[in-house]
């Protein structure tokens, strides 16, 4: 029963989402945007129900917070895509960012969650807001609520929603088949190797738990603690077991992964950022030149006017 109901419910969710998004997109006639939001919310509910049916055991489901953050992310995303005012779109995107960083915390990626908020909400969206302010004509006095037609009228809302959500239906159908066939991951990663890289942390933890005294220290070879027979070797040659529950934190693991296993990533990222900076400077310089030319032209016409008078 579930095998039949679950995909059908998922397709119903996709169809409701498509109808809702198509109705919520800005267009001439106001009034159906709210209805579109409600239809899209119904689609979200149908999708959640389909996901419930996919789990044989309710203990395998993600936590309640997943659904809260998912609703926030998709709702704010829908409002961002459909809002006629660009500033509000950018602000709703910040809400999406915060919801997805909540999801990152649920996925035990604490560092990326904070990096996401700092980089996106703190830097990228601020840049967007500045550009929106720069690239908007001042409203005229008689019409302060003026909206541009290119903001209030979406291009082909029905067809693009239909095509987009057909893609979503195909993707979800494949995802359920594929996720079920993935091999079950085997236990935790190589946390001992990372702990060996941090003799100071191991030593502090051993001292704190009272396993070793103040004068004893962890033996190191080239700055790496020696791990043998499930324990760590001390300076006097004896071996004590690693403290129970001592795990490298997400930041430590990510740092070792980034710097030890993918050092090239940092180099490439640095080159990309440098190129973007140079490109932005080049584009901005061209703008200054144009402004100088315009200023010169204005000065010339002003001088002519003064000369005529």
């Amino acid at each position: 029963m579930n095998e039949l109901a679950q995909p059908i419910l998922m397709y119903v969710a996709c169809a409701l989402g498509a109808i809702g998004v198509a109705m919520a997109l800005p267009r001439h006639k106001p009034g159906i945007a709210l209805l579109g939001g409600l239809v899209a919310a119904a689609g979200f509910g149908a999708g959640v129900l389909a996901l419930f049916l996919a789990a044989e055991d309710s203990s395998l489901l993600p936590s309640l917070f997943f659904y809260v953050f998912a609703l926030l992310a998709l709702g704010a995303g829908l409002r961002m895509v459909t809002h006629p005012r660009p500033v509000y779109s950018a602000l709703y995107f910040i809400l999406t960012i915060i919801a997805s960083s909540g999801l990152y915390v649920l996925l035990s990626a604490e560092f990326m969650a904070f990096a996401l908020i700092i980089i996106y909400a703190g830097a990228i969206i601020i840049t967007y807001l500045f550009v929106i302010m720069l690239a908007t004509q001042a409203p005229t006095e008689e019409d302060e609520e003026s909206l541009y037609t290119y903001d209030t009228e979406a291009r082909e809302p029905i067809w693009s929603s239909a095509v987009g959500f057909i893609i979503l239906a195909a993707l979800t159908a494949m995802l359920f088949r594929g996720a079920g066939e993935l091999p079950v991951p085997s236990g935790s990663g190589d946390s001992q190797a990372i702990l060996a890289q941090m003799p100071g942390k191991v030593e502090r933890e051993l001292r704190r738990s009272g396993v070793i005294g103040k004068e004893a220290s962890v033996a190191t070879e080239h700055g790496v603690a020696v791990i043998e027979q499930g324990g760590v070797r001390l300076g006097d040659g004896s071996v004590v077991p690693l403290p129970v529950g001592l795990e490298p934190s997400n930041v430590e693991e990510l740092g070792f992964n980034l710097l030890a296993e993918h050092p090239m990533t940092i180099e490439i990222a640095g080159v990309i950022l440098l190129m973007a900076m140079l490109g932005a400077v080049v584009l901005a310089r061209r703008q200054v030149d144009l402004e100088e030319a315009a200023k010169a032209r204005q000065a010339r016409t002003l001088g002519q006017e003064v000369g005529d008078a």
Binding site: A154, S161, A179
Partner: peptide
Amino acid sequence: SVTLAHYLVLSAAMFVLGLVGFITRRNLI
């Protein structure tokens, strides 16, 4: 893996929302 499927479906939905927005909206920003 069911939890993974939840996150993947959410990710696909967000992607499609962005795609539909990219196609339909006419404001460059």
